[in-house]
Amino acid sequence: MDKNISFTLKVWRQRGPKEKGHFQTIPVKDMPGDTSFLEMLDIVNEELINKGEEPIVFDHDCREGICGMCSLYINGHPHGPATGATTCQIYIRRFNDGDVVTVEPWRSAGFPVIRDLMVDRGAYDKIMQAGGYVSVNTGGIPDANAIPIPKPVADEAMDAAACIGCGACVAACKNGSAMLFVSAKVSQLALLPQGKVEAARRAKAMLAKMDELGFGNCTNTRACEAECPKCISISNIARLNREFISAKLKD
């Protein structure tokens, strides 16, 4: 049995995109250690509603670490202190009695705050719409062995495809750059024969969209890789650079 923990929650409150935000301090008493971070926010919200106050707005969906909907910048880390885990996979037992737990939204020009801890990550959808797909008529399914793909390549593509598009890379980046996301999405397709055909067009279109939406220029600090809940490697960024530069040199 986990012991109960009491701590101070310092949470960002902002009524709307244009309003000025501030921190609200909420004491949390005797929270069981096996409560997930989002459940804790649910409990706090219930208390706020019972008191007649506005609940804290935050994004969440699957609560099992695969949908990429939860966010939250907890104590200086996107998705909190754990490595390779999303906010919904963080448990209160990670914190100590008497801690101050600061919760902020992703802060980046590309992800404007909608309310409290919820940010607009529509920019990622726009980048995907710009080229993150394979535009061929799929037809019938070919036999799995009809297109041989070496195991290491398949693994690398799968690792890149593990990106859930949560935006932690942008949140962690001091340059507000979305390169880790874009490079993972470019890589997962460019590595495989079906996606290779359009690799050059895809890299150019997705990068142009990323630049247009106001994300920053990557300076290889590796903060994204360290904070990514899916441990996406920055070797994908090198691949995107390679694809993009060779595409431009061919033009």
């Binding site: 310092k10 104590n75 980046s108 020009a109 705050v113 994300f215 920053g216």
Partner: peptide, 13 residues
Amino acid sequence: QNRAARGSERYAV
């Protein structure tokens, strides 16, 4: 450009 991309609000922690 990178400072602009980071937005006007900075993280408290």
